[in-house]
């Protein structure tokens, strides 16, 4: 066991834990942040995507030790004071959600994509999100939501 200090959604959280535990399980079981989902445990589906220092990471294969000292953003950390992040708003407006289990990972992956490509082409969206699986296969709606988010962010910026 070790005491690990994590920066999660702008707050410092201290956790006593085995350092080799997956970040996903510490977020969910120790910090109560259940918005980050388990999908495969092997980094193959993107359900557990979080942002580590602004870059998307699959938290199921990231140890909590590896996340120490880095800025972690989970889905719970995106909305500010009840105002949805533009990407969340775009998913909502577009209705790009069926069962919604992949949604937190999709939203965070989109946030990261739009940081790199503020005006992504469709091919860039496909490449950027291809590692995130949606079994409801709502890909057409999600593509539309990402385009909408890009347009909204572009206007704002």
């Amino acid at each position: 066991m070790a005491t690990i200090r994590l920066s999660v959604n702008g707050k410092t959280r201290s956790v006593d834990t085995e350092p080799e535990r997956p970040l996903l399980e510490v977020l969910r079981e120790d910090l109560g942040l259940t918005g980050t989902k388990y999908g495969c445990g092997e980094g193959q589906c993107g359900s557990c995507t979080v942002l580590l220092d602004g870059k998307p990471a699959v938290s199921c294969v990231t140890t909590v030790r590896a996340a120490e000292g880095r800025k972690i953003v989970t889905i719970e950390g995106l909305a500010e004071g009840g105002t949805l992040h533009p990407v969340q708003q775009a998913f909502l407006d577009e209705g790009a959600v069926q069962c919604g289990y992949c949604t937190p990972g999709m939203v965070l992956q989109t946030v990261a994509l739009l940081q790199n490509h503020p005006k992504p082409t469709d091919a860039q969206i496909v490449d950027g999100l291809n590692g995130n699986l949606c079994r409801c296969a709502d890909y057409q709606r999600i593509m539309a939501a990402v385009r909408r988010a890009a347009a909204a962010t572009g206007k704002k910026g």
Binding site: L84, F91, G100
Partner: peptide
């Protein structure tokens, strides 16, 4: 749009 979508895009919904 589905009525519970806000809880789904914010991660607040408890599956």
């Amino acid at each position: 749009v589905r009525l519970d979508i806000r809880e789904l895009v914010t991660g607040a919904h408890r599956f």
